[in-house]
Design a protein around this nucleic acid. Structure first.
Lengths: 161, 161
DNA sequence: TATTGTTATACTCTATAACTATA
DNA sequence: TATAGTTATAGAGTATAACAATA
């Protein structure tokens, strides 16, 4: 039961009357506004499935990486292990994943999506795609490509540091 | 005293070994990763000035809009009024802004940046620019322009809804 | 001794309800 | 009655410390 407003609130929805030229000069400002819109939209799109974004991301990675360890998943998604536990408890209780003891290392759990989990994952990805398609509808193909490659370049620079 | 890790953590830093193709298909994923990198970097850049991003954004808008009301600022930045109060308390205690009663409406406060506040704002904007320039260094001029216009289009679609 | 998963807990950010003083 | 600012508080997300089981 998310507590956030229907239209998710951050410090970015500058009204027309206010001069935000000081902030508009920086790309991070636009990135934040765009990201918040996409995030808010995705959040609402996933709500009917009972998925939050972190839970959704976790499920997608488990589906794509059968047998992944909890710690690997946590590292991959940059979620602290204690917080990962809660997310996986949720997914497990819904019957969408299973935790199986790794025979070669009995400390670890290997994660697998159930059939129901894969079905939910498919539905969620579809909702995600639809949500995005709507927001990207006014962009040309070239803009989408440039956007993605530009974002990837930023990611890479960030990873180098 | 921020409690976050040096490299801010979200569920996006997928390591090389994990197959994240399911997530990589969606632009929101890249947007999130790029945004988190910029946010983390800006957060660290502003730390020496004792500014957090919301506090920084608020100060910039006050400098650019002398006399803005608290409620206007809150609306502009999409911060709930109760949360705005704390941010402004902080800025006021540091001597960077003043709250002045509006004579025509004694319920309201008009906000003004002090000289010290404007100086800090200038320094902060400089740090912000440097932080961004580093992350944008591998982008061509066309990529930066397309990125900004694409993000603006997404913003506009988001606002329509 | 180190690591995996876990529990308990604390800090930050964001949201709502209700108060006060003005309008 | 409505609005501006405030206070108190609650929820979500994210962080750390410490423990049991296992390596």
């Amino acid at each position: 039961m998310p507590q956030q407003k229907a239209s998710q609130k951050f410090e970015t929805n500058v009204s027309k009357k206010v001069d935000d030229s000081g902030l508009r000069q920086v790309a991070g400002y636009h990135l934040k506004r765009a990201y918040n819109i996409i995030r808010s939209d995705l959040s609402k799109a996933l709500e009917p499935l009972g998925l939050r974004i972190t839970t959704y991301s976790s499920l997608i990675l488990i589906v794509g990486n059968p047998g992944i360890r909890q710690s690997e998943l946590a590292t991959a998604l940059d979620i602290e292990r204690p917080n990962m536990v809660v997310i996986l408890d949720d997914l497990e209780q819904r019957g969408w994943i299973t935790r199986e003891r790794v025979v070669t290392d009995r400390r670890a759990y290997a994660l697998f999506a159930t059939l129901a989990g894969r079905n939910v994952s498919d539905k969620a990805m579809e909702l995600d795609s639809k949500s995005e398609a709507k927001l990207m509808s006014s962009l040309t193909e070239i803009e989408v490509k440039t956007l993605t490659s530009a974002l990837n370049k930023i990611e890479r620079i960030g990873e180098e540091q």
